[in-house]
Design a protein around this nucleic acid. Structure first.
Lengths: 338, 338
DNA sequence: TTGTATGCGTTATCAC
DNA sequence: GTGATAACGCATACAA
C-alpha cells in the first residue's frame, strides 16, 4: 500500500561517509559546519549528502550532544480555549517567526491541569532546551521554579520577585502616558480612567501611566474606576463614573474590550464620542475597529513580544548573555474617538 | 546562578534499575507497561521511579525504538498569518485535545516557502511518525507524495484522486441541504444562493446541497451567483442577484463572511431580513454573531475536524485500520435571519 | 586536518 | 519472568 512506515530506510551519516570516501567524523563536521575541513573533502561530502538526500537523525543527534534543539511553549491555561484566543495565537506567531530563523523546533504543551507534575517532569527530564511561559495572568509565575533546571522566559513581569526571572513585557506605562497625553493635548481637562485589575502588572502600570500624564499636565486624577478587562465590567465602570456627576470630557480605558463596554453606556446616556467625551483604549485588538467611532488606542505589540521571548530564550540556551528584562515600546494608533 | 543547563543530570533508567535492584530491561518493561513482570518487582521499580523522579529520555527511546511519538501539523501557508486565523487555531485546538489523550507530541511546522524541500526532507528523515496537513485551499494536496513514506491525514477532500489519501472532511452538502430546507420549510419559494469557488470542494458541495434541497422541494434553482468566500465578493454577488429583477425571498450563502457582505447590500436596498429575504449562512464563525439580525447558519465543526484528523493519524501510525474518509456532521444554528 | 573509538539512554533479541 | 548484550545514529574527546 502507500503508507508503509519505514519503506525506504533513511540514509545515515555512515552511508554518506562511505559514498564520500571519508570517515563519519568528517561528515559530522561538514554537516555541523565546522571549518577545519579541507575544501575538497567538504565538497564531496556535500555532494554525497545531496545525492543521498541525507538529513541528520534528530534523536541520535540529541542523544549524543545532549542538546535537543527544542523549546517548549508552555500554556498553563486549560486546553480548550487558549487557541481561540487571539493573544495567544499572536504570541505563537511571533515565536515561530523567530524560531524559523534558527534550528530550534517549537513544541507547544498545555499543562494538563489533571497532571501538572507530568508536565514538570517532562520539562525537567532533559527533553527540551528551554521553556517559554505564556499566561494571561501575567503575574502568575507558578512555573518559576523551572528556572532552577532550565532557561525559562516569561511573558510579562511577575508581581513579585521580578528580579529573579527573565521576562519580556510591553511598556504599559509608556503606552498609557501616550494615550492620556493625546487627551490632554486635545484640550480635555476632566480626564477619567477605567483601570484594569490592580493585582496584574498591566492593570497597575496602565493606571500609573494615566496618573503620570495627568500630573505632567497639572490635572486632577480622581476619576478612577476599576474593571476586570471584560466588556461588561467596562460598561459598569463607565456607569459608576458618570454617576459621580463630575465633569468628564476625556477617558482612558485600560483595554479595548472595556472601552467597548464604556461606549455602549456613553451612547445610552446620549453623549457623543469624541465631542462630549474623547476615548482612548489600549491593545489595538479586534474591538478597536469594530466599534463606532473607530477607537483611538495604544498598539500592543503581541507578535513582537513572542518574537523577543524566543530570541532571549535562544540566547540563554546558547550561553550568551541576555538582559533579565526587555520592555517593548508601544505606539498610539489614532482613529476617530480622540 | 539559576539557569545552569544541566545542573542536576536527569535520572536514567540505569539509576532506577540500581535503586530497585533489578536489571535495566525490567525497568524498561515496567515503564512501558509490559505484563510479564512479577508484581513485587514492578512495585519496587515504580517506587524507585517515584523517588528518583525518573522520566524516560525521549531521544534515547526514539533512537532505540525508531518511533518518535511525534506528529507534525504541517501548515503550507506563509507563516505570518496562519496563527491569527481562527480556522487554523481551532483545528490546532482539536488536534491537541486528542493528542493529549495519547503520548504523542505535536510539532507545528509552517513549511517555509523559501525552502519547501527542507521541510520535506525533515519529514521524510524519520523525525516524525506522521503528518497532518491543514490548508485553506483544501483542494491542495501538493504534499500528497509524503504518503509514500509516512502516514498522512489531510483536512478536507482533494479535488482529484480523492481515493488515494486519508482525509477528514465536513459534510458540506448535508449542511447546505439543511440550511436550504430551513428556507423551504419557512415558506420561501424563490430561493437564491451565493456559492463559493467551484474549484474547491466546499464551494462545490455547498452548491450541490442547495440544488438538492430545492429539487426536493420542487423549486427553481436558477438564482446562483458565485463569490470567493470574502465579504466583498458576497456583497458583489448579492448585487448581481438583485439586479436580475427576479423574485427573491430566501438566500443560502456558502459562508458567513459572504453573508455579511450580502447583508449590507440587502439593507442598502431597503429590504428587511428576514421579512423580505430570509438568509442562512454556513460556518457559524465570528461573523454570524456580529451582524444584525443574528445569522442563522450551519455550524462547521472545525475543532472536531482537528480531533478526528489526529485520531485517524494515530490509528494509522499504530498500524490499526482506518477509513480513508471521515465525513463530519454539521448542525443548523437557528438565530434571527431565517 | 582527519580518523578512531567511546558513549549518549533506550529498546529489543536473545539466552537463561 | 529476568537479565545480559547488541544495536539505534550521531557527536566528540583523543590520537595520529
Amino acid at each position: 500500500m502507500s503508507a508503509e512506515p519505514g519503506s525506504r530506510p533513511a540514509p545515515t551519516l555512515e552511508m554518506v561517509a562511505a559514498l564520500a570516501g571519508v570517515s563519519r567524523a568528517t561528515v559530522s563536521r561538514v554537516v555541523n559546519g565546522a571549518q577545519s575541513v579541507a575544501p575538497h573533502l567538504a565538497e564531496s561530502v556535500e555532494e554525497a549528502v545531496r545525492t543521498l538526500n541525507y538529513v541528520p537523525n534528530r534523536a541520535a543527534r540529541t542523544l549524543a550532544s545532549r542538546r535537543t534543539h527544542t523549546v517548549t511553549l508552555l500554556v498553563p491555561e486549560s486546553t480548550s480555549k487558549v487557541f481561540a484566543d487571539p493573544f495567544f495565537a499572536t504570541v505563537v506567531e511571533g515565536v515561530t517567526r523567530y524560531l524559523n530563523t534558527t534550528e530550534y523546533m517549537l513544541n507547544i504543551v498545555t499543562s494538563s491541569e489533571t497532571d501538572p507534575d507530568k508536565t514538570r517532569r517532562y520539562l525537567m527530564g532533559g527533553n527540551v532546551d528551554g521553556v517559554l511561559v505564556v499566561s494571561h495572568h501575567s503575574g502568575d509565575h507558578s512555573w518559576a521554579s523551572l528556572t532552577n533546571s532550565l532557561p525559562v522566559v516569561f511573558a510579562g513581569r511577575p508581581l513579585v520577585n521580578a528580579d529573579e526571572s527573565y521576562f519580556v513585557e510591553v511598556d504599559n506605562e509608556e503606552g498609557a502616558v501616550a494615550a492620556t497625553a493625546r487627551l490632554v493635548e486635545g484640550g480635555r481637562r476632566h480626564i477619567g480612567t477605567i483601570a484594569g485589575p490592580q493585582d496584574m502588572p498591566p492593570g497597575v502600570d496602565r493606571l500609573a501611566g494615566w496618573r503620570a500624564a495627568l500630573a505632567a499636565g497639572g490635572l486632577d486624577d480622581a476619576l478612577v474606576e476599576i474593571g476586570d478587562f471584560t466588556v461588561t465590567s467596562g460598561a459598569a465602570a463607565m456607569r459608576r463614573l458618570l454617576e459621580r456627576g463630575k465633569p468628564l470630557d476625556g477617558l482612558f480605558v485600560a483595554n479595548d474590550q472595556m472601552a467597548a463596554g464604556a461606549y455602549s453606556v456613553i451612547k445610552e446616556k446620549g453623549l457623543r464620542i469624541p465631542e462630549d467625551i474623547a476615548v482612548v483604549g489600549f491593545d489595538d485588538d479586534y474591538f478597536a475597529t469594530s466599534v463606532v467611532p473607530l477607537l483611538t488606542t495604544v498598539h500592543h505589540p503581541i507578535s513582537a513580544l513572542g518574537e523577543k521571548m524566543a530570541e532571549v530564550l535562544v540566547e540563554l540556551i546558547e550561553g550568551r548573555p541576555a538582559a533579565r528584562v526587555y520592555r517593548l515600546p508601544t505606539s498610539l494608533v489614532v482613529r476617530d474617538s480622540a
